[in-house]
């Protein structure tokens, strides 16, 4: 078991600008400190959680499929499966032949495993660009609005409220029809076009409490510039929260992109699990229950990726969430008792 010193990691309100220190820290030392305080320790707290480990393992499989898998496994093509007894290689049930282990489609004889694997890279790119876009915009708007206050806050918050009051999915659909994005990176951004708003709002209220902290006040009295305070004092303290929400945003990208591909609103020229779902489902209503296997595998793929995102979010939640701290303080029981039983009582605030 990895030992984590809870008493150190509990100090959430850590700041990097040692105002009281006479000695200037070198860049290297700062980086080391940053790594120690914001990457290694939270990482270990998170890694201590079973959910983080399972989530990372699943995600790793997807990344492998999206990078190496695409190289090694053939691309989906019409009538590519060659199994005796199935003309054109169509409708091969799963687990009957090693050359197409998950079977082939009823209508076009495409290898289902190939379809699944070749849909992964685009999906991962979409998740990455959508997640990064939403988080970066939310962090920028949320921290500036929360920290600056006054007119800036009013303007940014009104804008956020406006973005938040548009139902996301219909907006994305309208944009998708009008703009017809094909690049997965652009598509990711279109999907998150107003998702950032809810997150920005939440970050703003986090920042509202951080701005009152003494280390922020110290930086301000020392005349440190606003961007510097935001990047050095404020943002590091909301990082775990942002991580949790990055994973949630990623789940949203997966759900809405597959949903739009399923509806056929996005251009269908690429491989996507949603398109597979659509084809399989429309054939299922014609052929009946025998065609169900085509539906099952893309479903499992979608759920697996979403599951890994949820598990990672829940694991990251541990670093940040006060209720975990409450639990570590021994004030309530927990599922992972063996992990927390040795935590020193009463060190948490």
């Amino acid at each position: 078991m990895i030992k984590v010193s809870h008493s150190e990691s509990s100090d959430e309100q850590f700041s990097f600008d040692y105002g009281e220190s006479e000695i200037e820290l070198t860049r290297r030392e700062r980086l080391q400190d940053f790594y120690e305080e914001f990457i290694r320790k939270p990482g270990m707290v998170a890694w201590n959680d079973r959910r983080t480990r399972i989530g990372s393992a699943i995600l790793f499989v997807y990344v492998l499929m999206g990078t190496v898998g695409v190289w090694f496994y053939r691309a989906p093509q019409t009538n590519q499966v060659d199994v005796p007894g199935y003309p054109g290689g169509r409708g091969v049930p799963p687990f009957t032949d090693l050359s197409a282990i998950l079977g082939s489609t009823q209508q076009s004889g495409k290898d289902i495993l190939a379809q699944i694997i070749h849909a992964t890279p685009n999906m991962l790119l979409m998740v990455l660009s959508g997640g990064v876009f939403a988080t970066v915009v939310a962090v920028l708007i949320g921290t500036v609005a929360g920290y600056k206050g006054g007119t800036v806050d009013t303007v940014l918050t009104s804008f956020t409220d406006f973005a938040m009051s548009i139902p996301g999915l219909p907006l994305v659909m309208v944009l998708a029809v009008v703009l017809r994005p094909t690049n997965p990176l652009v598509l990711g951004i279109v999907l998150m076009v107003n998702y950032w708003a809810g997150l920005g709002r939440a970050i703003r209220s986090e920042v509202l409490s951080i701005r009152q902290e003494s280390f922020v006040e110290a930086s301000r009295t020392m005349g440190v510039s606003t961007p510097r305070i935001l990047f050095k004092d404020v943002i590091p303290n909301i990082m775990p929260y942002v991580l949790v929400n990055f994973a949630n945003a990623a789940r949203f990208v997966i759900f809405s992109s597959v949903g739009l591909y399923y509806l056929g609103i996005l251009p269908a020229g690429v491989a996507n699990w949603g398109i597979q779902l659509d084809r399989a489902y429309s054939q299922g209503s014609l052929v009946g229950i025998a065609a169900l296997y085509q539906l099952l595998f893309p479903m499992i793929m979608i759920m697996g990726l979403a599951l890994s995102m949820i598990l990672l979010a829940q694991g990251a939640d541990r670093i940040f969430n006060p209720r975990v701290r409450t639990r570590l303080a021994g004030e309530s029981e927990t599922i992972e008792e063996e992990e927390d039983a040795d935590a020193p009582a009463g060190v948490m605030t």
Binding site: R251, I254, G259, Y262, M303, G304, M309, I310
Partner: peptide, 9 residues
């Protein structure tokens, strides 16, 4: 967690 990982469609 399983329920949340399943899209409604």
């Amino acid at each position: 967690i399983l329920a949340a990982s399943m899209p409604f469609y």
